[in-house]
């Protein structure tokens, strides 16, 4: 079974994004970048499937600038067999990404695609579901457990009221939630080995997908600031403040 894992280069999750002073966007100059945490979980799950003998090949794919090859190399160091870089300098939307990924699905014919549930920059939470629709496959989103059995995959999903399990016919699409697994770190020898693994580069505009923008970013602003609070001395003062000052209890 071949597993395709789309990964995204994003701001490091420990870094607080800052808005540019002209309010045109978020300022990413000299900001630490990393693989989207949900994509790390997706790669980890694919590698575990390979280690278990369920998957035969793990292919990582990213759509982005030349710099995103860094994250592909990380995926290779973690255990992916091959990487595909769909190169573009445009800021693409989830619909475009899903359409480009659908082309790669057509080409690579993976039985399973594992994506992150959400990019921590756009916070879109769309691409996996869109890819599932475009390829007419079943989807198991927000997965906390993935079990492959014969020609199906059982996915336990984290939903608002608890956990839901669905069974999908393969080929299928899965998106990862945080508790699916705990990703490993790449070892130094594996980082060295990754440099020799195959990395194919494809120009995004060569895939015949309409990449015209569907949305326009009008402006980006800082969220409303909270005014500074106070430190209370003890529980009695806290309760008193909540009753008489904040009037919330």
């Amino acid at each position: 079974m071949k597993v395709l894992v789309p990964i995204k280069r994003v701001i490091d999750y420990n870094v607080k994004a800052r808005v540019k002073s002209d309010n045109s966007d978020v300022d990413l100059t000299n900001v630490k970048m990393a693989m989207n945490p949900f994509c790390e979980i997706a790669i980890e799950e694919a590698i575990r499937l390979k280690e278990a003998g369920t998957a035969t090949e793990v292919v990582a794919v990213t759509i982005g600038t030349k710099a995103s090859q860094e994250q592909l190399r990380t995926a290779l160091a973690l255990g992916a067999d091959k990487a595909i870089h769909i190169e573009t300098d445009e800021k693409l939307e989830s619909l475009h990404v899903a359409k480009l990924l659908a082309k790669i699905v057509e080409q690579e014919l993976p039985e399973l695609v594992i994506l992150g549930k959400q990019s921590i920059d756009s916070d879109n939470n769309q691409t996996g579901q869109m890819l599932a629709a475009l390829t007419n496959r079943g989807q198991g989103t927000f997965a906390s457990k993935v079990d492959i059995e014969n020609a199906t995959v059982k996915v336990t999903r984290e939903v608002d009221g608890g956990l839901q399990t669905v069974e999908l016919k393969l080929p299928a699409i899965v998106t990862t939630d945080l508790r699916l697994n705990e990703p490993r770190y790449a070892s130094l020898p594996n980082i060295m080995k990754a440099k020799r693994k195959p990395l194919e580069v494809i120009a995004a505009d060569s895939l015949g997908v309409d990449l015209a923008p569907r949305t326009q970013l009008v402006s980006v602003s800082e969220p409303a600031k909270r005014s500074g609070g106070i430190i209370v001395d003890d529980v009695a003062q806290l309760v008193e403040k909540l009753k008489t000052e904040a009037k919330v209890i």
Binding site: A17, D123, R214, Q216, V218, V220, S221
Partner: peptide, 15 residues
């Protein structure tokens, strides 16, 4: 909100 709510985007849909 984008970036975990550290920025608020105003977005116009062209569809």
């Amino acid at each position: 909100p984008i970036y975990a709510g550290n920025a608020i985007a105003t977005v116009k849909s062209l569809d």
